[in-house]
Structures are given as structure tokens and as C-alpha cells.
Write a protein that binds this DNA or RNA. Structure first.
Lengths: 172, 172
DNA sequence: CCTCCACTGACACGACTGTTTCAGTAATGC
DNA sequence: GCATTACTGAAACAGTCGTGTCAGTGGAGG
């Protein structure tokens, strides 16, 4: 159970990495930006890896909150895309992609398993939104895999080009 | 025009980053691994940024060679997916994703514009493969954007899970 | 009051970073 | 033969990295 000060600093650090990226963050600039010190960060999170792990978990909490909020049932894909394409969520999604790529390059360390975990999370939600009688069929699996691919491919496009109109039209 | 030694070292460095990642590569370990020295790398490429730029261009050359080899016309998507899902191409594609994510987080420096550039490259190929009469219609644009999203979303899934069977079935 | 505990500041350690300086060597063109 | 060019080695530079050490704060509970 994290102390009050710990969650406070974690929130601040989370806000920081959303705009500065997580891959090459370093303690001293981060500490200076959030009004703390490396000493305190190390004390509260044990090590830099610990801090990164906490930040990754924090980002994941946002993601899971989204999935819970979106719910299941017909129209999930549309609702998910509305959330993904909202400009306000850009920093989070860029951070997400950064962590995704990193976990593929460097399977050890705090990033381990991040990519695989999110694939499974989302597939699960899409599965719960399918009619019961197709969920466990090969077609059901293929369908939700395709829906996931479409959403994430569209997200990649959007993050690079910012062209909401074109990409949204492609999902119609 | 690069000298013989320069292209030789670039090839070696390229092979190195394919397995070690490009984002957090550093000169000394790289130089040691390819039987060179930081002095020589700096002499030939000017700076680390110059080297990274050269490596990015080298990776892009592989990508463009692929697109030329795949050609255009009916069945492009299938042919592209066969290439993307080939196990031998995994390192290159992981490197590609790494550069993609990085260019979104850090729009300055050697990575600049990488993500946007590849989106346009691929859209161009898909466009050239469409029937002439739909190429310039809104439907044509939407269709190729969707094809690209499907391919790249599937690639993301594949890189994380390695589940060729499931993902390939989803594209069928 | 006094002790405990969460937290913080200042500083130094060794390892690493990209880059520079100074010194060569080997081959090539005149 | 001689000068120019391409390349290389060794060492050092200033800076940053994560982390450890030692010394405190300040407030809460007994």
C-alpha cells in the first residue's frame, strides 16, 4: 500500500512521462520537474526500475478503467474508436505504443510482457462483446482478432498522421 | 557517396541493431561488437545522430526493396502479409516499430518523420494496386487506409504474441 | 518529553555517455 | 620520392547516469 506522498509523486511523474516519453526518462530531470529529488524517488520506489514499473502500472490502470467504462456488447468497436481517436488521449496512447515497442525489443526488465498483456486484455473485452454462441468458435476468435488489428492499425496511422477524418472513415 | 569501408561498417552496425535494438544503442559496445572503434564511427558518420540516420535509411532501403519486390495489383495485401509474417523478418519489423514509436515521442532529431513517411509509402503502394477508377474516390482512400490498418494491427499482434496461425486466420 | 518513522537534502562514487585532441599508419596520385 | 588522402589507435574531456552514504528534518504516538 503506497503512502500518500508516494501516490502524489507517482501522479506527478505520470503526468511528466505522458509528455516527455518513458523510454529515456532519467531521474534527475524528472525529480526537478515534479519538485522532488532523486533521493526521494529512490526511497519511495526502491530503484528506477521500480519507478518505471509503477508508471507502467499506472498507465495500465488508465487503460483498464477505459475498458471497464466502455463496457461490452454491440458497438464496442465504435465506442473504442471514439475513445482512441479523442485528441485528449493522444499522450497516453503514444506512451502506450512506446511501452509496447520497448517490451518487444527488451523482453527483460520492467517492460516485460507489456505488449502481450495488452493484446490479451483487449481480446478479452472484444470476446465478451460477441454473441455467446460464437465466442468459442474459430470464427469468433478470427473476428475479434481482426477487430483488434483494425483498431490498433488505425491507431498507428492516427498517431503518425493525425488525420482523424481519413482514418475514421476507413473504420466506418 | 559512402566509401567502401563506410558501407561495410554500416552493414555490420545494421546487423547489430537488428538484434540489439536501435533506441538505446551506444557507440562503444556497438564498435566493439562490429570490430571497430568509436573514433572510426565518428569519423565516418560525423556523429552518433549521423550514424542513427544512416541506420534508419538502411532499414528504409530494406522496406522499399520489399515494396518494389511485392509489386502492385490484385492480391497485394496477401503478399504483403506473407512477407510481414515470415519469421525471418521479425527483427526488421521490431526495429521498424521501435523507430515508429520513437519518432512519435521525439519528433526532433534523426527519427523525425519516420512514422509519417512509412504510412505514406505503404498507402502509395496500396493505392497503385487499386483499380484505376476508384483510386481517387473517397471509397478508394478509405479502403486502402483500412487495408493498411489491418496489416499493421495484425503485425502488432504478431510481434507480441507470435501467434501466426490466429492472426493469419483473422486476415483471411 | 521522547522515541519512532516517513521523508528529505547534500554529496560523492564508479560507470557510462558522445565527442575531441593528438598522434600515427598505409595506400594512392603526381 | 613526396604529398595528399583515408583511415585508425590511445587517451582524455565534460557531462550524465543510477545509486549509496550520512546526516538530518518534522510530526505523530506512547
Amino acid at each position: 500500500m503506497p503512502s500518500a506522498r508516494e501516490t502524489e509523486l507517482l501522479e506527478a511523474a505520470y503526468r511528466y512521462v505522458l509528455t516527455h516519453g518513458l523510454a529515456d526518462v532519467s531521474l534527475r530531470p524528472l525529480a526537478a520537474a515534479i519538485g522532488s529529488s532523486t533521493r526521494v524517488l529512490l526511497y519511495l520506489f526502491g530503484s528506477k526500475d521500480g519507478l518505471v514499473r509503477a508508471l507502467l502500472a499506472r498507465a495500465r490502470a488508465d487503460e483498464l478503467a477505459l475498458l471497464a467504462d466502455i463496457g461490452t456488447g454491440p458497438g464496442v468497436v465504435t465506442r473504442l474508436w471514439e475513445w482512441l481517436s479523442a485528441p485528449a488521449h493522444r499522450p497516453l496512447l503514444t506512451l502506450w505504443l512506446e511501452a509496447y515497442a520497448r517490451s518487444l525489443v527488451e523482453p527483460e526488465g520492467p517492460w516485460a510482457g507489456f505488449a502481450r498483456a495488452t493484446v490479451e486484455d483487449w481480446l478479452e473485452v472484444l470476446k465478451a462483446s460477441q454473441p455467446v454462441d460464437v465466442r468459442d468458435t474459430p470464427e469468433g476468435l478470427a473476428n475479434r482478432t481482426r477487430e483488434l488489428a483494425l483498431l490498433r492499425g488505425a491507431l498507428l496511422d492516427l498517431l503518425a498522421t493525425g488525420d482523424v477524418e481519413r482514418v475514421s472513415a476507413a473504420l466506418g
